[in-house]
Computed example of a mutant assay.
Amino acid sequence: MGDGSDMTLIIAASLAAFSLLSFALLRGWEGWLRLRRLELSQADALPPPSAASRRLELIDLKDRVKRLEAIADGVDR
């Protein structure tokens, strides 16, 4: 075999490997997008949170803010 045929074989193998890798990455990306669409469609189907759970979440957030302010002021709790 000459130098030209060796180089052609290397280029062809590289192109084939690049094509397979590109195809695999594309399939993975499509699968991830499908999963995200499914997650988003299920999130839309959930009922809105109740008033009590919203109040509890607000209380929790206020407590976190107080703790962060204490940390920023250098006060240990």
Rank of each mutant, 00 (worst) to 15 (best):
M1I: 07
M1D: 08
M1W: 11
M1Q: 10
G2Y: 07
G2A: 05
D3M: 06
D3F: 07
D3Q: 06
D3L: 11
G4L: 10
G4A: 14
S5W: 08
S5N: 04
S5F: 10
D6F: 09
M7K: 15
T8Y: 06
T8K: 14
L9A: 15
I10S: 09
I10G: 02
I11V: 15
S14R: 14
S14Q: 14
L15N: 13
L15C: 08
L15Q: 11
A16W: 10
A16R: 13
A16I: 12
A16G: 05
A17K: 03
F18G: 01
F18V: 07
S19I: 07
S19L: 12
L20P: 00
L21M: 12
S22Q: 04
S22M: 11
S22W: 12
S22R: 04
F23N: 07
F23I: 11
F23E: 02
A24M: 07
A24G: 09
A24K: 04
L25H: 10
L25Y: 12
L25M: 15
L26V: 09
R27H: 08
R27V: 12
R27L: 13
G28M: 05
G28L: 07
W29P: 01
W29T: 06
W29E: 12
E30S: 07
E30T: 05
G31S: 11
G31N: 11
G31L: 05
W32F: 07
W32C: 03
W32T: 05
L33E: 10
L33M: 08
R34G: 04
L35Q: 05
L35M: 03
L35K: 09
R36W: 00
R36S: 01
R36Q: 13
R37A: 08
R37M: 02
L38P: 00
E39P: 00
L40G: 01
L40H: 02
L40A: 06
L40F: 04
S41H: 01
S41L: 05
S41P: 01
Q42E: 11
D44N: 03
D44S: 06
A45F: 03
P47V: 00
P47K: 02
P47F: 02
P48T: 02
P48S: 07
P49N: 03
S50L: 02
A51L: 08
A51I: 06
A52E: 15
A52P: 00
S53E: 14
S53T: 08
R54L: 15
R54S: 11
R54N: 11
R54T: 13
R54D: 10
R55G: 00
R55I: 07
R55D: 05
R55C: 00
L58Y: 06
L58H: 08
L58Q: 14
L58F: 08
I59N: 05
I59D: 14
D60M: 04
D60A: 07
L61N: 03
K62D: 11
K62S: 12
K62I: 07
D63Q: 03
D63F: 05
D63S: 04
R64M: 10
R64E: 13
V65W: 03
V65S: 02
V65Q: 09
V65Y: 06
K66M: 08
R67D: 12
R67T: 09
R67N: 05
L68W: 05
I71Y: 13
A72D: 13
D73R: 14
D73L: 10
D73Q: 13
D73N: 09
G74K: 00
G74S: 05
V75D: 04
V75M: 01
V75Q: 06
D76L: 03
R77E: 13
R77F: 15
R77I: 15
R77W: 14
R77T: 13
